[in-house]
Write a protein that binds this DNA or RNA. Sequence first.
DNA 1: TGCGGATATGCAAGCGCTTACATTGCCCGC
DNA 2: GCGGGCAATGTAAGCGCTTGCATATCCGCA
Lengths: 343, 343
Amino acid sequence: MRTTPTLEDVSKAAGVSTATVSRCLNTPDLVATATRERVAEAIAALGYTPNFAARVMAAKRTMTIGAIVPTLENAIFARGLQAFQEELNRSGYTLLVASSAYDPVVEADQIKTMVARGADGLLLIGHERDEAIYSYLDTQHVPTVVAWAYDAHRSEVSVGFDNRAAMRMVTEEVLHLGHERIGVISGMRAGNDRVRLRLEGVLEAVSAAGLDRHSVIIVEKPYGVESGAEGFDALMSQVPRPTAIICVNDVLATGAMLRAQGRSYDVPGDISITGFDDLDYARILTPALTTVHVPHRAMGEKAARQLVEMVENKSCGQSIKLDTELKRRGSLATVPVWYSDFN
Amino acid sequence: MRTTPTLEDVSKAAGVSTATVSRCLNTPDLVATATRERVAEAIAALGYTPNFAARVMAAKRTMTIGAIVPTLENAIFARGLQAFQEELNRSGYTLLVASSAYDPVVEADQIKTMVARGADGLLLIGHERDEAIYSYLDTQHVPTVVAWAYDAHRSEVSVGFDNRAAMRMVTEEVLHLGHERIGVISGMRAGNDRVRLRLEGVLEAVSAAGLDRHSVIIVEKPYGVESGAEGFDALMSQVPRPTAIICVNDVLATGAMLRAQGRSYDVPGDISITGFDDLDYARILTPALTTVHVPHRAMGEKAARQLVEMVENKSCGQSIKLDTELKRRGSLATVPVWYSDFN
DNA sequence: TGCGGATATGCAAGCGCTTACATTGCCCGC
DNA sequence: GCGGGCAATGTAAGCGCTTGCATATCCGCA
């Protein structure tokens, strides 16, 4: 069995020491041109590729960045991660991926694995996790960037947007259109600061408009189209029923909309519905979904750049806030006429 | 600076040799229970985590599997990869991800990187790539599984479905409903055997039905909703225009459908449209999209199992063929009345 | 002509772990 | 009571690479 050639094989073939070959690879400037060429030939002739593990072990850098996301199945993470990976690749890093299925225990585990594997840096979603994890990362000197959330009050470096402000913006629009009975289909709040901040945004806007924040009915559902449908039913069985349903993401909103149509409600004639994320298909629903556009790709890209910068310059990094945009589309309209009749 | 504890630190703390500690971690059966417990305590007390690189170097296994997909932004890959990762995780492996953006050169590069990093196995999408790559993988002894395609004629181990047969099935259904003028919106054929096989499936069915395969109009477009819309326009400007448009994936089909509605065509009254993949939103389009359901999750899972099996038992693996299912939905109906009038 | 100082290269000590092989005790059967 | 054998543990040799330090060579300038 022909084994892979090693640095030593190359050094023999080129008639130099292993140190010189290593330098050709890592700091070519320190090597005389003639030598460098001879070594390059030897490398080519032998088809030599450096052994990664050995390199890591000796140099203490892996050129690997780890990312732990709740799930790749959610398009918003997949898209952001794609951009993240592209940018990483551009800088010569490779991406290690794990998914936590929204489970903090699993996530903690994955983080340890990544660190043990020598990831030079880590990308995490959302701020919320055990403080011990952050201090662990700190003592291990693993630069970490939090994405999908921007919170000026937190010390972690983050690249994201203001979930609270974005949702407040949506809610203000809803209120502006005359809705006063508002229902919210929320994701699971536990361990998910993005969801919680979005809910706070809703309540803030409601309070600011002089309405009672307790008039907002919130149902909490796991992620999924089906959940959205269930949430819709739950809200519509309230008396009086809401005239607008604000969903914390597009998937739940989609479920709500399908169920609405299944129950022969007119959207937005009878009931308005809004989402969050601006997934591809928000536009193709009928009516199109009013939602918040999130710059997923930009987020992934900037997170990657930030992380590489932190790893290479040992800088402590800086949070970046991205803008979101309200997409006004067909699923949100003024409060239906029957509503004022009731009052 | 407190450095990470090493095996040696643990061995000292537990009063045993490093070999014993190592054995506790890798082959606990060989260690006396009392010793094992003492070592476990020491490990816990020190917060020891094995150094991955050192381990790899000494043991020549990385417990890492690489996957190279065209893009994560495509939900079908993201979903399959998610399942792949979950299954890998279950077996203790970590996933290394790269995306090729459908570029064979980039892909070849990524493959080399993965091998250099010591990936124990590799997941690739589709059979088609330079023969040199397969022989390279072979000489490097890196077990490889090809997914998203099943082709009994190929020697590579694959886990996937028969793209040709699936598309033939769709086409037969279309023909069965009386359509004779068929348009196809195809993805880019270059370097993409999945697309090519699907097209062949269409033509096979058409020929088998006794129609001229040249009567099928094919337009080739890059991946994207917009492309689907353009493809629709291109096909509808033909004379006579098609009565059914078969798309090689749901994204193109979505574009076609939106454009159809934008141009005030009734789907399926004026024109039938079909897709492929059964993305989440195929069901929520109005009308719902007739398409082929592909078991993405099962595919990812089985590919992972197969790969782990190949890596661990040095077996040469075995291809697995998965079934697809035709989803009959609203976007496909019998040929419109005006059509027979013309004849 | 000689010397300081670049510049180019070699030497060799690890990096933290696994594992083949050696060693030590101990139990058992005859 | 003794040797054989097995179970438990230790010893130490790498794995392939990087890098601090030592060495060698060459240049220019006084």
